[in-house]
Write a protein that binds this DNA or RNA. Structure first.
Lengths: 349, 349
DNA sequence: CTGTTAGCGCATTCAC
DNA sequence: GTGAATGCGCTAACAG
């Protein structure tokens, strides 16, 4: 049996209260001698407070719940690492919940986390959350009265705390890099466009286009799903159009584009430039290292965790709207557009 | 305030006991009518038992602790996904702990998990655990009296439950594939050799060599650390030797080898064949898709979780020694050795 | 300065 | 069939 506070009370002869007091640093007026004895006993009996009991009375578990779609997604595992690192620094713990992008699981996990008494939830909404579903899960979140912060994905129709990267700027940066290189026909493999992040990246894309006086052509836009397979399908569809560059809305779909392009004999970047989004560490390992937008997602995890813990310390919680800036990482998959395309390509071979 | 069992007792007029009884399916002798009323009240008041209170009295939390080095490692995130999936199916939860391969963190997390009252621990020991440290953490694990299973990495000097893949067979398979292709000089970039898994893969390598009557040459062995950087360093050192194939003990270091080899103008597989280990999803996305050993690590997660949950259900826990077989995945990074190497290479160019 | 008394929310004997 | 009493291990008034 685990030693309890009672055991060390008997062992020392002091009452349970005294023990609790000194162990929680509230024994201001307890003689040094008594403390010594108690600490020694704690040492001798290897006593550690049962956190379940502590949690029951304090209504605090020092635990955060993380709801994401799939930890195997490198993007999310980076996020999770940031969160867990910050948790550890503060003596907190992390409960991991994968929803596989199913809204019902969002709902189920929110309830479970509430039942377990977590002190906060970090929430990356399921990809299948349309307006109604998003509303439903956020209403549930509000009803359980546990602080929560939305990460990565937002849902602006409802006011809530969030820590995100600036997807509009990211989309802009990626596209501007391409227009700066002279590209005027830029295809897009987006993510699901009912998601704010995808929507914003597309906004950024359009802004960069406008600045370069390039008309927006819907025929160049393929709505993907952030997967390698989606990237493959997208570029296959897109290949009937003419373009000199592709902007994939995440690195995973960029890999799909990359594969199909190379398989079809295209040279990257000589024939077609490619820029991704996320800066997954694999991207620099490709034979043609991928130019991409770096999202400081690890930092998002840290920041969100810090704030969530803060919310548990002090009362005043003003609206948290933290936007972290992404930046462009130029590697080998993009180059200036060839003025006389066909000829240029020939000369390369 | 959250509704408690007391609330629904008052609401229905029945006692707390009765509520508890029917909600836990132990009200065999309670009239259907009463049950109906209670269930209705639960519905009306949206009552859900506080799991902290339940945990305190039942001494069960239905929670598993997972100790790994770094969730960003694709290998571990696959493992974690398997674990969490199986947890969810059983109504359990997962607490994630990253140790960054630091033994002291293993120790700290083991204690924390015990304090939180998890019902089981899945433990992948820190990479820096030498004999003494391994002994220390396993002794601690034993002392806290919580069921635990070692995953991926074992420590055979001490008897404990484990679920692993067969590293010896994996090493054998990888090497045999190479010897079958005619390679006789096969370089190795291993993992830390004080780890059982690396040690066993090397054993497998030697067995395949013996079978092919190839002498073991220590000069071809570089002890790496399972990182991309380690792979780079390893191959740079090894390049002074002659060999026609490289066996990297995990895909990450294979990427390092791959990069350096290509950067130095070697063609894979024409000049040098390369086989990795792990079958990370990224390996098939390389320009030269990597031949590698697939470790069913997701399945390891599921299996380990199942057994850990079982240990909480029934008493009889016999020694668990589950070994899951890996298999070879042949892709494009390996080919038959060229008989007249130099000449053959020239003709390719 | 320290001990007594009450719960936290729930499950579980044991009576009625 | 149902309820009152007890306690899980701990913290926190409140006394003294």
């Amino acid at each position: 049996m685990r030693t309890t506070i009672k055991d060390i009370a008997e062992y020392t002869g002091f009452s349970v209260t005294t023990i609790s007091l000194v162990l929680n640093g509230k024994g201001t007026k307890i003689p040094e001698k008594t403390k010594q004895i108690i600490f020694k006993a704690v040492e001798d009996l290897d006593y550690r407070p049962n956190q379940i009991a502590v949690g029951l009375v304090k209504k605090r578990t020092n635990t955060i719940g993380l709801i994401i779609s799939d930890i195997r997604n490198v993007f999310f595992s980076n996020l999770a690492k940031g969160i867990e690192d910050e948790c550890r620094r503060n003596g907190w713990n992390l409960v991991l919940c994968n929803t596989n992008d199913m809204h019902e699981r969002d709902m189920a996990y929110i309830r479970v986390l509430a039942d377990k008494g977590v002190d906060g939830i970090l929430y990356a909404m399921s990809i299948d959350s349309d307006h109604e579903k998003a509303m439903e899960s956020l209403t549930l979140m509000d009803s359980i009265k546990i602080p929560y912060i939305m990460i990565d994905r937002t849902f602006r129709q409802k006011c809530c705390h969030y820590v995100v990267t600036d997807h509009e700027v990211g989309g802009y940066l990626a596209t501007k890099h391409l227009t700066d290189l002279g590209h005027r026909r830029i295809a897009c493999v987006t993510g699901p466009l009912h998601l704010d992040d995808s929507k914003f990246r597309l906004d950024g894309y359009r802004r960069a286009l406008e600045e370069a006086s390039i008309p927006y052509d819907p025929a160049l836009i393929y709505e993907g799903d952030y997967t390698v397979e989606g990237g493959r399908e997208g570029i296959n569809k897109l290949l009937s159009e003419t373009f000199t560059a592709v902007f994939a809305f995440n690195d995973m779909s960029a890999y799909g584009v990359y594969n199909v392009l190379k398989a079809n004999g295209y040279n990257i970047p000589d024939d077609i430039s490619l820029v991704g989004y996320d800066n997954i560490f694999f991207s620099e390992l490709l034979d043609t290292p991928l130019t991409t937008i770096h999202q400081p997602i690890y930092e998002v995890g840290i920041e969100a965790t810090k704030r969530l813990i803060e919310m548990n310390e002090k009362k005043p919680i003003d609206k948290l709207e933290r936007v972290i800036e992404p930046y462009l990482v130029v590697r080998k998959s993009t180059s200036a557009v060839k003025l006389e395309k066909t000829e240029a390509n020939e000369s390369v071979k």
